[in-house]
Amino acid sequence: FEAKWDHASTLKKVIDAVKDLIGDTSWDCTNTGMSLQSMDSSHVALVHVLLKSEGFESYRCDRNVSMGISLNSMAKVLKCAGNDDSVTLRHESESSVVNFAFESHKEERVSEFELKLMNIDTEHLGIPETEYDSIIKMPSADLRRTCADLSQFGDSVTISCAKSDVRFETSGDIGTGNVRLSARGSSDKPETEIAIEMINPVSLTFALKYLNFFTKAAPLSDTVKLCMSNNHPLCVEFPMPEVGYIRYYLAPKIDE
């Protein structure tokens, strides 16, 4: 297995976006790309990352391999790469290590690191194809700000989607808060658009703690998609055009 990115910045951001939520995980490498699927330790959230082979500068995977890696260690290794350095990952069949090579574009500096692989029993869940009742596309910075703001007031947020607006509400010991975002088009700046596709109205409650973990992916993507159906996990997707995506799933809080 050998994969090369032209710039380290995307991989650094991907790892930063998921490491605090899932810790140790397995990267599944096939000839179509690298992916991981992992739940957080309390099995409330699930992360699915796909890095498509087309998104790499060069990519080769002769035999499918599952590489168990501590994401905190991977973040440490990637700290040694400059944002504009190229990154090459190498793993030989049966080897218990993965190699990272970073090269500056002027080629005057090359650094190499070897990371020990871990034995990780990952439990994969089948994610069913779902026709969601409501899909909201919005700037990722708006979601990050909304979740951070409401976290000051409560632990949970109720997200309600009606025809042309989406409402985030919370309440706690010191008071209550809500943020309403209305659909807005923008032909010249599509990344600032708020688009609401509602087949059925939805209202679901989620733990803000996890949503705040998810919005760590905001630096990867200007836009985010919230896909919701009543009594179904929320899907928060950060698309990376040409490269792949990070999708986070979060189980709702349910009234007993």
Binding site: L125, A251, K253
Partner: peptide, 14 residues
Amino acid sequence: GPVQGRMEDYFKAI
């Protein structure tokens, strides 16, 4: 209050 659901309540292991 509401109870936190778990991923396995919705998605099955494969």
